[in-house]
Computed example of a mutant assay.
Amino acid sequence: MRDVLLLIRHGQTDWNLEGRFQGAREVPINAVGREQARRNGRVLPSLLGEHDWQFVASPLGRAQETMRIILENAGRPDQPFVTHDPLKEVCFGAWEARTLKELREADPEAVATRKRDKWNYVPPEGESYAMLAERFGEWFKTRQGRHVIVAHGGITRVALHLLSGMPSASVPQFFIPHDRIIAILDGKALVI
């Protein structure tokens, strides 16, 4: 059996629109986010084929709601899924609920330091992308087979780094859409 991942970012939230760091905070998806999830749900059956899949989500509410909407629109409303803590978004600690503009005004040196090395920068009381990659990587080693994962932009970025070789310096800048599915197969990524 081939290892295949279908990675889906949760639907848009109001904080996404405002440019606020969400991290581990519980922020619900909005009406646009629900439509994005419905779109991904309509596309999903064409990718699943006749294979066995495991459905996994981040334990954060925005990912679980997105998964439920996706499954309903994929014609699988009763499909069970599990959640795993290692799939939570990167924790931005004291930066959560704030915008980059607010942070530039409050602590321009910290923002400049982060800009120079987003992969390794650790916000106060938070974690870096490097730390997130370690957390996700440990979980990833334990699973096998085909997975549909609904999680976050940070999780998708580190998966692209670990599984397709995207350079760590490029990963934090890579835009992860809410309304697309990213398939990773044999080290190659495809946005659908």
Rank of each mutant, 00 (worst) to 15 (best):
R143S: 01
E105G: 07
I70C: 06
A106P: 13
F175Y: 07
G11F: 01
D117K: 10
Q12L: 06
H147E: 08
M67D: 02
I149V: 15
K115L: 13
P108C: 06
R25C: 15
G145R: 13
A169S: 15
I8A: 08
R116M: 11
V111Y: 10
W15Q: 01
V82L: 15
E96I: 07
R62V: 01
T99I: 10
R2I: 13
V43N: 01
R116V: 05
G165A: 12
L160Q: 13
R34E: 15
H10L: 03
F136P: 11
S46T: 15
Q64I: 12
V90Y: 07
D186M: 10
G126F: 15
I70Q: 01
A133T: 10
D52A: 14
A31V: 09
G49P: 02
A110E: 14
S170K: 15
T113H: 05
D186L: 06
V56P: 00
R62Q: 02
P124A: 01
F81S: 02
W15R: 01
M1V: 13
R157I: 04
N40A: 06
V27I: 15
R76W: 05
V32E: 14
N120F: 05
G75L: 06
L6Q: 00
H178W: 05
N73S: 11
F21L: 10
R135Q: 11
A106C: 04
V27E: 13
R20A: 09
P108R: 06
A112L: 05
K101H: 10
I184H: 03
R2M: 15
F92Q: 05
R38G: 00
E89V: 04
R38T: 14
V158D: 02
A63E: 04
E89F: 08
W119G: 01
E72V: 13
G126C: 12
E96L: 09
R146Y: 11
I69M: 07
L190H: 11
W139L: 12
P108V: 08
V158E: 03
I29D: 02
A189H: 10
R25T: 09
V171G: 07
G153N: 12
Y129D: 02
L60T: 01
Q12W: 04
H84K: 14
V90S: 08
H152Q: 11
F21E: 06
N40K: 02
G23D: 05
G153E: 13
F175Q: 11
I176Y: 05
G154N: 08
V56E: 10
P45T: 09
R180Y: 04
T83Q: 10
A112S: 12
L162Q: 15
D85M: 09
L47V: 02
Q22D: 03
V4W: 08
M1Y: 11
Q54A: 11
R39A: 04
M1G: 11
L190K: 14
L162V: 07
E109I: 04
R42Y: 04
T113F: 03
V122M: 03
E26H: 09
D85K: 13
A183W: 01
A97I: 00
R135H: 11
V150N: 12
P59T: 04
G11S: 12
R34N: 00
E72I: 10
H178M: 01
P80G: 12
E125N: 14
R104W: 15
I149E: 00
H152K: 04
I69R: 00
F21P: 05
P86F: 13
P77L: 13
A57F: 13
V150I: 14
F140A: 09
R38S: 11
A130S: 14
M1T: 14
H10G: 02
A57K: 11
R34P: 08
H161P: 06
